[in-house]
Design a protein around this nucleic acid. Structure first.
Lengths: 206, 206
DNA sequence: CAGGCAATCCCCCTTTCGGGGTATTTTATC
DNA sequence: GATAAAATACCCCGAAAGGGGGATTGCCTG
């Protein structure tokens, strides 16, 4: 009897593609494309394991993991994401998510991960441990504007509503240092105001 | 004879999944996972069409499109991306890229797009044109926070990067009037900074 | 007509931003 | 060990934003 598997990813092609790829190994009991459908679908199909995208519409993967854990003791949860941010990994481990796979994995790695988790183990993609913090290999925007990791970090904090002083305090930096970073960011992005920065950050998912 | 197709996407699972999905319809002559391999692979396999991710390692999709156009007159290029940024669409059209598909398309849309392009046409995902117009949302937003028409007008202008002085000038108002409106807006939304206002506005489609 | 609301305008004051510099130390890379 | 890139820090200055108060006009509605 093949293990029962539910796929939750809003990228239809990816979702469908993964299904095709591994339907020899697993019984794909459901596919959902929106966060709000995951819980109901889990209820209906009772999968052994859920492949869960983190960046889902309506409800994100983290919130879903919390809810799934509440309602379904035995369902294994595996995140499948393109994000390698350490804070994502951290949060996943805190939520006792069973696995974390990257979207640039191979079919073999995917199956290896799922099988490991089904056998009661954990599987966090080995590539996650060899990453330099805050360096986003596959972030087109960061490359396009040659932003440094520190600059991206500060952009995120500005996006989250922090001002220069708060950022300096949080990062244990001098006020002037953060000001310098801001100036460099503005220069690189050819902008002049924090409001433009917010727009840039939100529109580019930084 | 099935059309020859090359897939370029660094997300192995996606790349592989798409291959599985459409290998009935097309002859998948190659798969690459890094920007630097695209040109050589195009040379070797001579595909009719390339499905090209924009956010590739080493060389991004735009630069590749330029190079491909130079070296291979007849190869059709279709971007397959998760990004809906208008400036991406613009740039794609300027580069005379034949198609632009979204990663949350269905298998059917994918095939429709590829076939259109193979028949000499263009195919830009219809969803790209209907991004935005959602009057329900901002209605809700306006009601929820009981914003006046004038306030909404000013929020839009702030979102578009204008400062208090520019807004005053444009609306033939005194500086202090606009400042007062800003204060009232901040009070109603329980925020303190323009950056938070931008987030509110963008996230609620104001 | 009274009360509420929207829209307009003003003063005072402090903090934060944005733009112009310059300079030192770490880190990575060749 | 030289070089380049990144990260750190400081100075000066004016402009803009933010926060507190108050006030007037007009308009609609009960």
């Amino acid at each position: 009897m093949k293990p029962r598997l539910l796929i939750a990813d809003d990228h239809t092609l990816f979702n469908e593609g993964v299904k095709q790829l591994i339907s020899d190994h697993y019984n794909i009991v459901g596919q959902v494309f929106d966060g709000k459908d995951v819980l109901i679908m889990a209820m209906v199909t009772r999968p052994d394991v859920i492949l869960l995208d983190i960046n889902l519409p309506s409800i994100n993967g983290f919130d879903l993991a919390i809810e799934l854990r509440k309602s379904f003791e035995t369902i294994k949860i595996i995140f499948v994401s393109m994000y390698t941010e350490p804070r994502f990994i951290e949060q996943s481990k805190q939520l006792k998510v069973d696995g974390y796979l990257l979207k640039n994995s191979t079919k073999e790695e995917l199956i290896l991960g799922i099988d490991n988790v089904l056998n009661g183990g954990n599987y966090y993609d080995p590539k996650l441990n060899q990453l330099r913090p805050n360096l986003h290999h596959d972030d087109f925007f960061v490359k396009q504007f040659s932003l440094t990791p520190r600059e991206v970090e500060i952009i995120r904090m500005i996006k989250n509503g922090m001002n220069t002083g708060e950022i300096a305090e949080k990062l244990f930096l001098g006020l002037e240092t953060v000001k310098t970073h801001r100036k460099n960011i503005y220069y690189k992005l050819s902008i002049t105001k924090s409001t433009e920065l917010i727009k840039f950050a939100l529109e580019n998912n930084i």
